[in-house]
C-alpha cells in the first residue's frame, strides 16, 4: 500500500503579522497569499490559500521575522477522524 501523503496545517497570528509578504515569497508551492486588512500597517495580512499544496518545508515559518506563522504536521489518525 502506498504511504499516505503527509498533511499539514498552518496557523497565522494575524495580530503579529505585519504583512511583509516574505512567507508568500519563499513558499515554493504557492500555499499562501495576502488578504486586505486595512487596520494593519501594510494594509494586509497573510492567509492560507491552498493548504493541500503544502509540503511541510517550513520555509515560511523559518523566514517570518514576526513569529506570526507556524506549520504543523497533521497526524494521520486525527486526519481520518476529522473525515
Amino acid at each position: 500500500m502506498a504511504k499516505p501523503k503527509k498533511k499539514f496545517r498552518i496557523e497565522v497570528n494575524e495580530e503579529w503579522c505585519k504583512g511583509c509578504v516574505i512567507c508568500v515569497d519563499v513558499c515554493p508551492t504557492n500555499v499562501l497569499d495576502m488578504k486586505d486588512m486595512l487596520s494593519k500597517w501594510e494594509g494586509m495580512v497573510v492567509y492560507v490559500k491552498d493548504i493541500d499544496k503544502c509540503i511541510g518545508c517550513d520555509l515560511c515559518e523559518l523566514s517570518c521575522p514576526d513569529f506570526a506563522i507556524e506549520v504543523y504536521e497533521v497526524p494521520q489518525e486525527e486526519e481520518a477522524q476529522s473525515g
Binding site: C20, V21, P65, F67
Partner: peptide, 10 residues
C-alpha cells in the same frame, strides 16, 4: 515590516 532582525532572533 520585513526587517531581517526578527529572522535572526528566531
Amino acid at each position: 515590516p520585513g526587517c531581517g532582525i526578527g529572522i535572526l532572533m528566531k
